[in-house]
Design a binder for these strands. Structure first.
Lengths: 197, 197
DNA sequence: GTCTATACTTAGATAGAC
DNA sequence: GTCTATCTAAGTATAGAC
């Protein structure tokens, strides 16, 4: 698969460089020229690997989305609603915490989101699946809005600079507790989650 | 002040046009050329009224921010903590609901935020003041994160397309209730809010 | 004071040579 | 797989017409 061909190397170096520059200057503030200069190649060389700037953006974001997908699959395999909710929430929070620099980047420069939506069948699918996992198939209005606020709040606040210097475990714990509280589920301390609904 | 000079008219038409195009194509997807064409003038004419594209963006966003500022002032004038919190929260929710199309725009295209931050002494000040109003001067970590999640969640979800077809009053009620619940304050039904803390 | 004509710089993107 | 050259469009800027 990933034999160390020159292209593979350039491609991965390119993605690493792009992520670094994106984080420093934002996506909009990073030109292909900058990326090319940093790599010691020309813009055209960059274009050989990615047909458009959006493709680079997507490739940078892909790992987090893939992982979220896997976590949602896992949650859907749970047999009780309570376990589904816990799995979905903890998966969501885990991704937020682990990829928070990426999320911060996206939040600060979300022309990105549109690019991602176009490619990955839409982030909308992610959000819709997540909502169903957490609120069930036919939530009333209050529940639906509540879940939307929760998802948006956890993601945005998780990536926010105010929380940037918290260690992963602390942030994860707090976000998870907030999520459970918002879903009307009791705090759990260490033990396995119980079926509740 | 605002005598009907040609410039004033062009300026306000320009802002209206910009808002419309921004909403349709996003800020990044709207060029000065498009705005100029729509107005039947040249790019340079646009440039006469606003020295940069960011200035247009700021001017479009300004009313909402000004109003939020006023609401925070009002909240700070309240004598009890409980009344401060209620005022701040309801002011915040009101702005979100009334300007939700603007918020949706910003969320979908947040290169904007940086532009606004640069001009209006930073959105950071808004967020910091709001946090202090809602969480008090020296909140513990859990409270601080909780308020951050709430602010981010209400704002983002309020502007989200899922809630787009709710009428203002319904959305306001739900967001306000979610906010109060997250702050650990009892629901109030009709009556004036009581001092609680 | 308001706008047009024009031009400069940089960005994203493409074609074709090596 | 990478480079040179080139194109279009964006944002910015100025000189000058009215």
């Amino acid at each position: 698969m990933s034999a160390g061909t020159a292209a593979d190397d350039t491609r991965s170096r390119l993605l690493a460089t792009a992520l670094r520059l994106f984080s420093k200057h934002g996506v909009g503030g990073t030109s292909l020229q900058m990326i090319a200069d940093e790599l010691g190649v020309t813009k055209a060389a960059v274009y050989y690997h990615f047909k458009t700037k959006d493709e680079i953006t997507e490739a940078v974001a892909a790992p987090a989305l893939q992982e979220l997908l896997a976590r949602m699959d896992e949650a859907e395999r749970q047999r009780t609603r309570g376990a589904q909710i816990d799995q979905a929430l903890s998966g969501f929070v885990d991704i937020i915490v682990r990829y928070r620099s990426l999320i911060a980047l996206f939040n600060s420069d979300p022309g990105i989101m549109r690019a991602i939506e176009r490619s990955l069948d839409g982030v909308e699918n992610f959000a819709a699946r997540m909502r169903t996992l957490l609120a069930g198939p036919d939530p009333d209005l209050a529940t639906a809005i509540n879940v939307n606020v929760m998802l948006a709040g956890l993601a945005l606040a998780g990536g926010a600079p105010e929380q940037a210097d918290l260690d992963d475990e602390t942030l994860r714990t707090h976000l998870f507790d907030i999520g459970r509280r918002m879903l009307g589920r009791p705090k759990r301390r260490g033990a396995r989650a119980e079926d509740k609904s």
